[in-house]
Design a binder for these strands. Structure first.
Ligand SMILES: [Mn+2]
Ligand SMILES: [Mn+2]
Ligand SMILES: [Zn+2]
Ligand SMILES: [Zn+2]
Lengths: 140, 140
DNA sequence: CAATTCGCGCAACTTTGTTGCATTAGTAAA
DNA sequence: TTTACTAATGCAACAAAGTTGCGCGAATTG
């Protein structure tokens, strides 16, 4: 079960961003705070026991949390966003790992520096998105 | 305009893979052979002058070409596949560049080696997908 | 030319996400 | 506590990208 502290932390974080501490917002952020790995919209929906929010509301809450920098969105080759809380360690740019068997996504610590790749002449580097694929410890 | 050689090359490549050299298959592969950069399903549809194939057929032809290793599929954060021919230089793993202004996607030459990143204990590396974002020479 | 079957075209469906708008419920002020 | 304000929710409809099933036609083989 999720300890109350997650609810409290969530409420505090939302207020700090100047948003209304709605029941649903708090529940969603608290749930995300409790997740080790990145979760999809579907997974959040399924895990939100009791209060089942509207699909659209969930999308909007997730977008709001991402806009406020409380969580980050992860793109994947399965055309599904995954969401993960911005713990201090993940405020900077970082790579992601996706298990090719169970589809689990976790955040990695760092990102190779851009020195290691060369762009065509006249191209300007802005950022990079790196997803490592392989097998997680449970699937090896 | 597209020189005949593309049509001929396309037909030859398809036959070499044991498939029927259908009019549409040949046209699609010839078109892809002529493209410098990766193109979306939509773009292919629009550029197939004269013979406008069924959407589903286009999807299936592209999947078939990818399965046979004649082209490769590129994932992107806009949830749209892009397709590019497997020139000799692109048979190996490589990174991609996506322009944040015009959405152009080009294949880069190399990929940083996996030495430059560390996985959690027990995780097994299989491959990596790297997309560099920035501005292309035309958009800088 | 005839027989075989691969691949195409059509219709219907699915998944993921977005937009518009009326209603509800947090919040803060009275 | 009550009231007023408006941010946020819920519903319906829409949109884009891609998939599935199936009958028919055309590419290949002999
Ligand atoms: Mn992350
Ligand atoms: Mn490529
Ligand atoms: Zn796994
Ligand atoms: Zn550009």
């Amino acid at each position: 079960m999720m300890p109350n502290t997650y609810q409290d932390t969530a409420e505090e974080l939302i207020r700090k961003e100047g948003g209304r501490a709605t029941g649903i917002r708090v529940k969603i952020l608290a749930l995300l705070l409790a997740q080790e790995q990145a979760v999809t919209h579907r997974e959040i929906e399924a895990r939100l026991i009791g209060q089942q929010p509207d699909r659209v509301t969930l999308y909007r809450v997730l977008q709001w949390l991402a806009d406020k920098g409380l969580i980050h969105k992860i793109t994947s080759d399965d055309r599904v966003w995954r969401f993960h809380v911005n713990h201090d360690a993940y405020l900077h740019q970082h790579a992601h790992f996706k298990c090719t068997r169970c589809a689990k996504v976790v955040c990695l610590d760092d990102l190779p520096t851009k020195r290691h790749l060369t762009l065509p002449a006249g191209y300007r580097f802005q950022s990079m998105e790196l997803t490592v694929k392989g097998l997680c410890a449970q699937c090896v």
